[in-house]
């Protein structure tokens, strides 16, 4: 039993890192743009497919391939913003962006079905089945890599947000878009770049997801989006570090439930979210006051 608990703790924490990677873009985009990007699930899958193409057709290692997929996804994110999000204005903007993101998800899913069909594909590399021996169990390398990438991503996003001029513009836009515009910040540019960064980061999550999932199809995004939204809501919408902590909390709870009653793990996953939000409606790391925009 001790080894099972140790294993659950380890996989819970490391698995949380993987989910944080997938949720980072979602929380960043919400924090800056007030957009609940329901296309995040399919963007993760798109990232996985890009890694698949590079790995299978061009024989580029999954990790090395990130040097290509992250910029590619950044560009895709900027294009999505300019084509689908930017034209939406007015009081109905929030609900309209929700619909626009859903449309984007359907379009991407349709393209993926057309290009790759409905058969499962998977990402393989030597580290997808290798592991590190710790006490009396093994930690899968891909989980360790995913956790490491999650930490690196959170640090990178913090550096961008707090150590650069662009980051100051992002935070100003986050706090008050009108005031940011008055002091000369091109909020449209900031928004487009933020959406691009959020989507680019998702490429990393997509690669790790593709490597741990055992196989994915264009439809796999639906299983992901509800979990990612739950993590981001629990964290407090817009909190990147909070998303990491919330993801670790949720997956650890799930891993412990798996020991005794795995068919309850999904229920407990969402139950934990409901309980936390009942006590703290703004989420674990969210601010109590709504952002003024």
């Amino acid at each position: 039993m001790a080894s099972e608990i140790g294993l659950a703790l380890a996989t819970g924490i490391l698995g949380g890192g993987v989910y944080a990677l997938m949720a980072a873009g979602l929380t960043l985009v919400f924090g800056v743009l007030d957009i609940i990007n329901v296309a995040q699930g399919i963007l993760v899958v798109l990232g996985a497919y890009l890694s698949y193409v590079l790995s299978v057709h061009l024989h580029i290692d999954l990790l090395v391939g990130l040097l290509i997929t992250v910029p590619a996804m950044f560009v895709i994110g900027v294009v999505i913003y300019w084509l689908f999000i930017r034209p939406l204005r007015g009081a109905e903007r929030t609900s309209m962006t929700l619909l626009a993101c859903f449309a984007v998800a359907l379009i991407i899913e349709g393209i993926l079905y057309r290009e790759f069909g409905s058969n499962y594909v998977s990402l393989n590399a030597w580290y997808t089945t290798a592991s590190l021996h710790v006490i009396d169990f093994y930690l899968p390398d891909i989980y360790l890599i995913g956790f490491g990438l999650a930490i690196a991503t959170v640090i990178a996003l913090y550096l961008i947000l707090y150590q650069t001029k662009f980051g100051r513009a992002v935070r100003a836009t986050m706090q008050n878009q009108t005031a940011a515009r008055l002091v000369g910040i091109d909020t449209n540019r900031v928004a487009a770049l933020t959406f691009g960064i959020g989507t680019g980061v998702t490429a990393v999550g997509g690669m790790v997801y593709g490597a741990i999932s055992g196989g994915f199809t264009p439809n796999s995004g639906y299983d992901l989006i509800s979990r990612l939204l739950a993590i981001v809501i629990l964290a407090g919408m817009g909190s990147i570090g909070g998303a990491m902590a919330a993801a670790v909390f949720m997956t650890t709870v799930e891993a412990f439930v798996d020991i005794w009653q795995p068919d309850w793990s999904v229920v407990v996953f969402y139950l934990a979210m409901v309980i936390v939000l009942t006590v703290r409606p703004q989420g674990l790391f969210g601010r109590s006051a709504a952002r003024a925009q």
Binding site: T11, G15, Y143, I212, S213, G214, S220, D223, L224, R227
Partner: peptide, 8 residues
């Protein structure tokens, strides 16, 4: 329907 069966 779970994205990751590795813990199981």
């Amino acid at each position: 329907e779970t994205p990751d069966y590795l813990p199981n």
